[in-house]
Nucleic acid binder design. Structure first.
Length: 483
RNA sequence: GCCCCCAUCGUCUAGCGGACUAGGACACCGCCCUUUCACGGCGGCGGCAGGGGUUCAAAUCCCCUUGGGGGUGCCA
């Protein structure tokens, strides 16, 4: 049987880390099995679903390079791939179930149901529906309909034994029959409930493996009951461990505002390949123990049986490290094109070889492009001593004026300079003047950048250009005098 | 309350009865490299939640306790 998996988000908010990790695992599984990756939009929550959020789903999948085989805009023969366009399908199966006596209309009001639940809870029982509408006479039903009482459809659940299934990741999981009630299939507004739509869709779309978050474990028996009622063979299930926040709570919308949404990471200049790599390692690990894995390596190494059972805390620091690794591995041309949008955002207008020298200098130092752009902006902007006291002290050392003047002479005669040449000049300065490196490198850095530490000085000089370097050295000397 | 899942360094993880004195990565701390910071290299710190079993042998299997998480909706 061919592998068909789906990612089924609801367009009710920005897509968050936990969601996208589920998408990644589905996608990796599909790609590793020559299977089909399907995108289904679960928009039956009419209150909260929006077009905008739907677009965001496409955008984020695209950003991460999770290409969809079937779905809106991707074609496929099992559509439509948006639940609100499948209403007729759900209604048809609802009708079939009702005809078979496996479902029945319920006229209970929300108030009634709540009272029932409270009572059950107080008595320490499972809060299950009493089934009071099960055996309404045809007469009573007719009367309720006449009065336009809102009408939902419930499953006639006659299963009394345990509902058991074998989870690919966790093994056998069973639920006591008494904890499952006659849950709602069709809401009174005519749309299906999550569990109903999910079961119908997974079956009709011929999904072979349902790979989703652990939070769905308790939905599984309900869906199995639906499969049973319809006489269908259920798919395989694999429940993924959850991604937790620092408080060990499930990462969910609004919990840590900017930290949870995938878009936040995109905006801060994390690379999609780093994000994919890092997220894949949350709950799964490579057989070889490798951590930096390309898209292809992730696919070829992926398998469901290497997925952990326990939740994983999202560790921003490790992500930063990994993103830094990816940035450092970028060839110059890539570095340039990836950094560009962030540089523009920080209004860094450096161009040509100067830009290249600057990027090369910064490449070794940053973990995100946002950070890179901010640093670039500070180096490209006007000179500012971060610590005036310290600067004065540095420039005030003996022989510093000789060093600066010598350098001005050396650089002044040149149009342009490469990092290599700059390095040579710097070295010769100390040698020819007979002064220690400590009097050259740190002092020049202070004069040129106004800071005590930073990226490779040779690249800074090349980036800044000889003219500007001479000017800044001059400024340092003046500044030193003009107390 | 009830149902379900889970449990190895601070964090991500390897481990699927003997090769474990428990391995790797991030973070942290030293040292080296170096003009600074970083990068890189070397080293260090640090963990099998507790208690019972099973077994010649348990991080690995079973049970209990504890702890954490998820669910408990006419949300998905």
């Amino acid at each position: 049987m061919s592998v068909r998996v789906r990612f089924a988000p609801s367009p009710t908010g920005e897509i968050h880390i936990g969601n996208i990790r589920t998408a990644i695992f589905n996608w990796l599984f599909a790609r590793s099995q020559q299977g089909t990756f399907i995108l289904r939009i679960e928009d039956t929550d009419r209150e909260r679903s929006t077009e905008e959020f739907r677009e965001i789903i496409f955008r984020e999948l695209d950003w991460l390079g999770l290409d969809v085989d079937e779905g809106i805009g991707s074609g496929g023969s099992q559509g439509p791939y948006q639940q609100m366009e499948r209403l007729e399908i759900y209604r048809e199966y609802a009708r079939i179930l009702e005809e078979k006596g496996k479902a029945y209309p319920c006229f209970c009001s929300p108030k009634e149901l709540e009272a029932e639940k409270d009572k059950a809870r107080q008595e320490g029982r499972d809060s299950v529906y009493s089934g009071k509408c099960r055996d309404l006479s045809g007469e009573k039903r007719a009367r309720a309909r006449e009065q336009k009482t809102p009408e939902a459809l419930r499953l006639m659940n006659d299963e009394r034994g345990d509902v058991v299934f074998s989870d690919i990741i966790r093994g056998e999981i069973s639920f006591g029959g008494s904890t499952l009630d006659d849950f709602v299939l069709m809401k009174s507004d005519g749309s299906p409930t999550y569990n109903f739509a999910c079961a119908i869709d997974d079956y009709t779309m011929e999904i072979s493996h349902v790979i989703r978050g652990e939070d769905h474990i308790s939905n599984t028996p309900k869906q199995l009951l639906i499969y049973m009622a319809l006489g269908w063979e259920p798919p395989e299930f694999a429940h993924l461990p959850l991604i937790l926040d620092k408080e060990r709570k499930r990462m969910k919308k609004r919990s840590h505002s900017s930290e949870v949404y995938i878009s936040g990471y995109r905006h801060q200049g994390y690379l999609p390949e780093a994000m994919l790599n890092y997220l894949a390692l949350l709950g799964w690990s490579d057989r070889e123990g490798e951590e930096i894995l390309s898209r292809e390596e992730l696919i070829s190494g992926f398998s469901l049986d290497r997925i952990k059972h326990s939740g994983a805390i999202f560790d921003r620091e490790k992500l930063d490290w990994m993103n830094g690794v990816y940035i450092r591995n970028l060839p110059l041309s890539e570095l340039r094109s990836r950094a560009l949008p962030f540089l523009q955002q920080e209004q860094v207008n450096v161009k040509g070889s100067a830009l290249d020298y600057l990027l090369l200098a910064l490449q070794e130092k940053v973990s995100t492009f946002k950070e890179m752009a901010e640093m670039a902006s500070s180096y490209a902007g006007p000179l500012q001593y971060e610590d005036q006291e310290k600067a004065r002290q540095v420039f005030g050392q003996e022989q510093v004026d000789q060093v600066f003047k010598y350098l001005q002479e050396q650089l002044g005669g040149l149009e342009e300079i490469t990092p290599e040449e700059a390095g040579k000049v710097l070295k010769e300065t100390g040698k020819n003047l007979g002064v220690k490196g400590r009097l050259v490198f740190p002092t020049v850095r202070w004069a040129l950048t106004g800071k005590g530490s930073g990226p490779d000085l040779n690249h800074i000089i090349a980036f800044m250009g000889t003219e500007e370097c001479v000017r800044r050295l001059e400024k340092a000397l003046e500044w030193r005098e003009g107390e």
